[in-house]
């Protein structure tokens, strides 16, 4: 490799982040269209949301693996061999595309640890985008003849968490989620204190019931 591995790593990191973001967004759309969590849909239609998810994943894969055609990196045409050490900096051609991304991590490719850092960040961003755009989707859905959702939906009575986003946006649901978490913590604290009291030293010594 004729380039500093750190420069190569930066290129890979930015490309991988975008790839992981697109694919996470797509996966989130497919998963939420199946589970009916409308608050995270990018489009207010179940079937379209699912197909959009598939399209986002495929677009992410296509862009990531085809990027060497128009972006310069350690994959200059004609220099892409299995061994990433001898590569030149430049744009790839179609013949090199299959192996262009196969760069050893010691030469600037992303190792498992780096991917384990970038992927969660991309997934969180995908969730945030879905939550923001989903707010608009829910508004459109609610206008649409009280939506196709019915009161029979699985766990509509449960507020907070993902269940609360079946018919509400993320931002409308958040206060209930936090309230529910707070009440759970208070309950746990009380239960914990009660259990601890059963075995307290004071009781053991004085035998109080």
């Amino acid at each position: 490799m004729n380039t500093d591995p750190e420069i190569v790593r930066d290129v890979f990191a930015s490309h991988y982040f975008f790839f992981a973001f697109m694919a996470s967004l797509g996966t989130l759309q497919i998963a939420t269209s199946n589970s009916g969590i409308r608050g995270l849909w990018l489009i207010p239609h179940r079937r379209l949301t699912r197909w959009l998810g598939v399209a986002l994943i495929l677009a992410g894969i296509a862009v990531f693996f085809a990027q060497p055609l128009w972006i310069e990196g350690p994959w200059a045409a004609g220099s892409v061999e299995a061994d990433s050490v001898s590569r030149e900096w430049g744009q790839a051609d179609w013949g090199d595309l299959g192996g262009a991304r196969n760069v050893n991590d010691i030469d600037g490719g992303l190792d498992g640890t780096k991917q384990a850092i970038w992927f969660p960040l991309a997934a969180i961003l995908a969730f945030a985008v879905s939550a923001v755009v989903g707010t608009l989707s829910v508004k459109i859905l609610m206008k649409d003849a009280a939506s196709d959702a019915t009161a029979k939906d699985n766990d509509l009575e449960i507020t907070g968490g993902l269940a609360g986003m079946v018919l509400r946006s993320y931002f409308a649901n958040l206060p209930d989620s936090l309230r529910s978490l707070r009440s759970e913590i208070v309950d746990d604290w009380r239960t914990g204190l009660h259990a601890a009291d059963k075995w307290s030293l004071f009781r053991m010594i004085f035998g109080r019931s």
């Binding site: 589970s35 995270l40 699985n154 766990d155 968490g161």
Partner: peptide, 13 residues
């Protein structure tokens, strides 16, 4: 992604 998708996939709580 499979792990990520599973997180949101359940139909009931």
């Amino acid at each position: 992604l499979a792990m990520f998708g599973l997180w949101f996939s359940g139909r009931t709580r």
